[in-house]
């Protein structure tokens, strides 16, 4: 079956298998920042924004995203530079092997869109479905809290 969707601002059309998941579709379309960690919704490495909310792309049928808008981590960087979530992740040493980072950043993007001033506990709860096996979670949590501060400051001039 054929579907059309927008991936990182670019309209795409694709012939899909009815049992195909969004993660496999995106990787097939070249969005290899979407990582296949567990393939069963446990690790969050494949997280993307689907119509504005972060989801495990491995657990969403591609057949259900016809007409939808998907954002991957590749959409974060702008001509002005890295997104604060990317910058603070690097600055805080929250990236080691980097495999979980794309999904974690998209999960954090969803959190900050809905809770611009989260507590540390709220950040940790938001990352409940994002597994990191290198850094642990202290540095990613600190990076997200710093990014939240930067984004609030930018918003308030």
């Amino acid at each position: 079956m054929k579907i059309a969707l927008t991936v990182d601002g670019v309209r795409r059309e694709a012939e899909i298998d009815p049992g195909e998941c969004v993660m496999d579709l995106l990787r097939r379309l070249g969005s290899t920042s979407v990582k296949n960690g567990c393939d069963r919704g446990d690790c969050g490495s494949c997280a993307v924004l689907l119509d504005g909310r972060a989801v495990n792309a491995c657990l969403v049928f591609a057949a259900q995203v016809d007409g939808s808008e998907i954002r991957t981590v590749a959409s974060l960087e702008s001509p002005a530079g890295l997104h604060p979530l990317q910058f603070t992740a690097l600055d805080a040493g929250a990236v080691q092997c980097g495999f979980c980072t794309p999904g974690m950043l998209m999960t954090a993007l969803d959190l900050l869109a809905n809770q611009p001033d989260p507590t540390e506990a709220e950040v940790r709860r938001a990352l409940a479905g994002s597994y990191c096996r290198c850094t642990g979670y202290t540095k990613p949590v600190a990076a997200i809290l710093t990014a939240a501060t930067l984004l609030r400051e930018a918003r308030h001039g």
């Binding site: 919704g41 969050g44 997280a47 689907l50 909310r53 972060a54 989801v55 495990n56 657990l59 969403v60 999960t107 969803d110 959190l111 709860r125 938001a126 409940a128 479905g129 994002s130």
Partner: peptide, 12 residues
């Protein structure tokens, strides 16, 4: 509901 799965799962 806060204790059901992860936000990634609850979003879907």
């Amino acid at each position: 509901l806060v204790e059901v799965g992860s936000p990634l799962l609850r979003n879907r």
